[in-house]
Amino acid sequence: MQKFIGTGVALITPFNQDLTVDFDALKKLVHFNIDNGTNYLVINGTTAESVTITKEEKAQIIKVIVQENNHRLPLVLGIGGNNTQAVVEELQTTDLTHIDAVLSVAPYYSKPTQEGFYQHFKAVSLASPKPVILYNVPGRTAKNMLPETTLRLARDFENIIAVKEAGNNIQQYSELLKNKPKDFLVISGDDDLALGVVLAGGAGVISVIGQAFPKEFSKMIQLGLKGENKEAYKIHYKLMDVVNYIFAENNPAGIKAVLKKIGFCSDAVRLPLVPASKDLQQKIANFVDAY
């Protein structure tokens, strides 16, 4: 589990203007993060627009990232959804040879009860040959998985090793950190709260903005893990505006606008998402120029 302490980044899926996958940009992004302090990479997560990339594209994305990574960083693969049986089948049929853990998002739209969350992730745990990182993001799934459910899963299933908590709720983070099993990892899924979570005892972050500023963001998290809060907060404050910008409209349109500005890829996204507005793009451009 030491593999997942520090900064993970939820990689985007770069697209060409015709909305085909831009594998050259993806390769550049992978190397940029490996070379600048990122601790692990998350493939085909929700930031990668996983619901609008095809099964064939997902397989090719995994292949390319595995090749470019060449065993240098741990790899986490997003496999989740609101059809439990389909998630189980994907876990059983996907080649996970080069994958270190699975990140599985809480079921969306269906709004299950807490027992429904438990039974869903029980099925995921039993089907997964790799460690499982739970992903709670109620702003997107429309239902919060409560700390008691997360901790029940952590205690009952040995291969459930962590939660990516993204409820933007300090009290919920505190409950998880206070009551978690000793070796269970609480990972921030909120870029704006990541440093505070780490200083309170969290294991790190799975970040969106980190892929654009890996050196700075990773250094901030490492300082936080060492308890060097004053130096860490200097970086936090420098990045605070752009963190707010990238989530102002939708994710990943915001981070793609940042990556376009710094020369990595286009800002193309697949419907129903649309690129960041001109006003937001201008704010992002102004930030990058000043930074």
Rank of each mutant, 00 (worst) to 15 (best):
V105Q: 05
V124A: 10
A106P: 07
D100M: 02
V124L: 09
L91K: 02
L103F: 02
K122R: 15
T113S: 15
S110W: 02
T97H: 09
S104D: 04
T97I: 01
D100G: 08
V102F: 02
Q92R: 14
L91M: 10
K122V: 08
T93R: 08
A106I: 09
Y109Q: 09
S110H: 11
I99W: 04
A101G: 12
A106R: 07
Y108V: 09
V105R: 05
K122E: 14
L96V: 07
F117T: 03
T113D: 05
L91H: 05
P107D: 05
T94W: 00
D100Y: 01
H120Q: 13
L91I: 11
T94L: 02
T93H: 10
F121E: 09
L91F: 07
V124I: 15
Q119A: 12
Q119T: 14
T97W: 02
D95I: 04
Q119I: 12
S125K: 05
P112H: 06
H120A: 10
Y109S: 11
L91A: 07
T93N: 11
L96M: 10
K122Q: 15
S125L: 10
Q114T: 10
Y108A: 13
V105E: 04
S104R: 03
Q119K: 15
S125F: 03
D95S: 09
V124K: 00
Y118I: 04
Q119E: 14
E115W: 10
H120N: 11
E115G: 12
D95P: 01
Y118E: 01
Q114N: 14
A101F: 01
F117V: 05
Q114P: 09
S125I: 08
